[in-house]
Design a protein around this nucleic acid. Structure first.
Length: 464
RNA sequence: GUCCCCAUCGUCUAGAGGCCUAGGACACCUCCCUUUCACGGAGGCGACCGGGGUUCGAAUCCCCGUGGGGACGCCA
């Protein structure tokens, strides 16, 4: 049987890191088994779903390169199907109308909570043999409930968590269609997973409690039950639960924050899943290796430090021209006076090794394009009156230096020797003058790239 | 409250009863490289939640605690 997995986000916000990992695992599972990966947008909550959120999810998946074979399907466009199945269930007696008002239900819940009971529907409109149902009120539009079995239990072998059994007595008759006739989440999922032939449902473990209900409905429909794999959640860097208020950000934010999709993908793949000691691998390898057996059932804490490390790796690996075009955009975003220098590739070759973030990399090389302003501390510490004679001599000799790193290095050495100094004594002030800070790659290489004229101008600013 | 899930270094994890004196990675520390800062290289610190079983033998299996998390919507 062909493997068919799906990612089914509800468009009520952006694609966050947890959703992205769920999508990644579903995607990889389909790839691994030469199956199909389906994208389904669960937009039945009209109040909270927005086209902007749909777009944000699509953008996030596109950035990560998570391509889908079918879809996106929109549940709101499948109303006809849902209505049909609803009627079938009503006819078959596996679903029924319930005329309780919201207020009535609320009161029921409250009473049960007070008594320390699990809040649940009491089945007052559930038809039973020989039972007399209440008088149908004229002013209440009914909802439709699923007639859940009351005895026995639902068991499934979760591909991540193992055997899970939940007693039917723990479940009540859930609402599958609202008073306005629109179907609800659990019902739509069931119909869609069935109709789309989903073979493995890979989703967040906040759905574990929905699974037995869905299995019961699937059985009522005579459907084949898919396998389930429930992924545990991702905690924030601080070990706290991710939420809109706390730490949950769009995957696109990582793009803005200077991360490469390769790094995010590799990081996410290793969060909750492992393949022996493998730490760095591309998506092709991941898809070959991926399995559900090696997914950890416990929650995982996000670790930005490790993401940074992977990001550094992928920055080093990246194709130079692609890197340059990315950095160019970031330079322009950060620096008004940015212009395209012909030697951006050379500058990056000198700097990429030291960067673990694209924004940082862009900021680090900004001094090539905009005059830097060193801090007062650095000036005071490194550009001392004692060193100025040597700097002045070096500056005067600039004109005769053949402009390459080796020759520059040679000239600095000559000055250093002439003044009886140590190399750093002159390298540090030059760094501050030329780059604006006291840390940089070899100063001779920096000068070689900066150019003779620009080097002269920047040094002379400090010669009184 | 009820039900469900989880539990190995600070973090991500390896581990399917003897290969475990518990392995790797990030972070941290030390040293090396060095012209500063990085990169890189070599070392180091550092964990099986507790208690009972089962077994010749348990990080691995079972039970009970404890701790954490999730679910209990006409949200998804």
């Amino acid at each position: 049987m062909t493997v068919r997995t799906r990612f089914a986000p509800s468009p009520t916000g952006f694609l966050h890191i947890g959703g992205a990992r769920t999508a990644l695992f579903s995607w990889a599972y389909a790839k691994k088994h030469s199956g199909k990966f389906i994208l389904r947008i669960e937009d039945t909550d009209v109040e909270r779903s927005t086209p902007a959120a749909v777009q944000a999810i699509l953008d996030g998946m596109a950035w990560l390169g998570l391509d889908y074979d079918e879809g996106p399907f929109y549940q709101m466009q499948r109303m006809g199907t849902y209505k049909k199945v609803l009627q079938t269930m009503l006819d078959a007696g596996t679903a029924y109308y319930c005329y309780c008002s919201k207020e009535e239900l609320e009161a029921l819940r409250e009473t049960q909570m007070q008594q320390g009971l699990k809040p649940r529907y009491d089945g007052r409109w559930r038809p039973e043999a020989g039972k007399v149902l209440p008088q149908i009120p004229a002013d209440i539009p009914p909802v439709i409930r699923f007639k859940n079995p009351q005895t026995g239990s639902v068991v499934w072998n979760d591909l991540v968590k193992g055997r899970i059994e939940i007693a039917n007595s723990e479940m009540d008759d859930l609402i599958i269609a609202r008073a306005d006739g629109t179907p609800t989440y659990n019902f739509c999922v069931v119909v869609d997973d069935f109709e789309m032939g989903i073979t493995q449902v890979i989703r967040g473990d906040d759905h574990v409690n929905n699974t037995p209900r869905q299995i019961n409905m699937l059985m009522a429909l005579g459907a084949t039950i898919p396998q389930y794999a429930h992924l545990s959640m991702i905690l924030g860097d601080d070990g706290q639960k991710l939420s809109k208020r706390h730490g949950a950000v769009s995957v696109m934010q990582y793009h803005e924050d200077g991360y490469l999709p390769e790094a995010v993908l590799n990081y996410l793949a290793r969060l909750g899943w492992s393949h022996g000691d493998a730490e760095i691998f591309n998506m092709q390898q991941f898809c070959e290796w991926f399995d559900l057996e090696h997914i950890t059932p416990s929650a995982a804490q996000f670790n930005t430090e490790k993401l940074n490390w992977l990001n550094a790796h992928y920055i080093k690996e990246m194709d130079m021209n692609l890197l340059a075009s990315d950095i160019l955009v970031r330079l322009q975003a950060n620096i008004h006076a940015a212009y395209r220098a012909p030697f951006l590739n050379d500058v990056l070759a000198l700097y990429r090794e030291r960067a673990n973030n694209l924004n940082q990399l862009a900021a680090d090389i900004a001094y090539f394009y905009v005059l830097p302003t060193p801090s007062a501390e650095d000036i005071e510490k490194h550009i001392t009156p004692e060193i100025m004679p040597a700097i002045k001599t070096f500056s005067e000799n600039l004109a005769k230096i053949e402009w390459n790193a080796e020759a520059i290095h040679h000239e600095i050495n000559a000055v250093v020797t002439a003044f009886g100094l140590k190399f750093p004594k002159i390298a540090m002030p030059l760094r501050v003058m030329l780059t604006g800070i006291a840390q940089s790659p070899s100063i001779d290489q920096v000068m070689a790239l900066l150019g003779k004229e620009e080097t002269r101008v920047r040094i002379e600013k400090y010669i009184k």
